[in-house]
Amino acid sequence: MDFLRPASWEEALAAKAEHPAAVPIAGGTDVMVEINFDHRRPEYLMDLNRIRDLEEWEVGADSVRLGASVPYSRIMEHLRAELPGLALAAHTVASPQIRNRGGVGGNLGTASPAGDAHPALLAAGAEVEAESVRGSRRIPIDAFYTGVKRNALAPDELIRAVHIRKADGPQQFSKVGTRNAMVIAVCAFGLALHPETRTVRTGIGSAAPTPVRARAAEEFLDAALEEGGFWDSGKVITPSLAKRFADLCAAACNPIDDVRGTAGYRRHAVGVMARRTLTWTWESYRGARRTTEGAA
């Protein structure tokens, strides 16, 4: 095993081009577990910790450019307003120690369906900034996850940043685990209301081979909210509408039975989380409308 220590992003790209099998390590929260338990012996480990701009973020007009290694604890602390769904998801990641080290780049690189960031990214809308010596490209999050622990990166590419749409409405994130802290998701659900486009986006974790959106549920809800004039009136979402949305979210799952839970439970829990997060976000949207109207 060789340990590569690129001092700059350019050096990292060059190293990755030369050694496509090199495994990038930043927070180490996935890679080191595999090494400690003899599950992986990469030929090259490539430390990204020296590239400090991977730990920086910029808030733009429409989106946040989040460096791949920005630790979850900083997302929780500094980006709660811009990325509320991701900030909530970040708060559910493992433990404080892990949140101090791990970042979204690691979640994306590993592309485990259980990664906590994925549902929030899917719901918010995001693009992955991938780069190699050949150039840079942006991969839409919906096209990023290609299989169980597989992603759309080419062998010579590294994740530099994620461009996440700034919240234009309430967002929520829920995750079921069988412990009240430090737990891997049995399943997870992210929801974002986008009042500007009058759309709703979802993200489901740990309930299919890859993180997925519940597109049929989104389409159903988009249409129902539009037809019912909900966005304008801000009226309460009816239980039957919420239930239909929840059922469609559950139906979007393609889960398995494993040591963390049964497929049946995962489907059920995604439905419950979908209904609850819809209620929370919609109540928040109504509250914000009332405040705006009251102020006007």
Binding site: L88, Q172, S174, N180, A181, R276
Partner: peptide, 11 residues
Amino acid sequence: PGGLSNTTHGE
């Protein structure tokens, strides 16, 4: 129940 995972606000 659920703790930090934010699964219920009392529901």
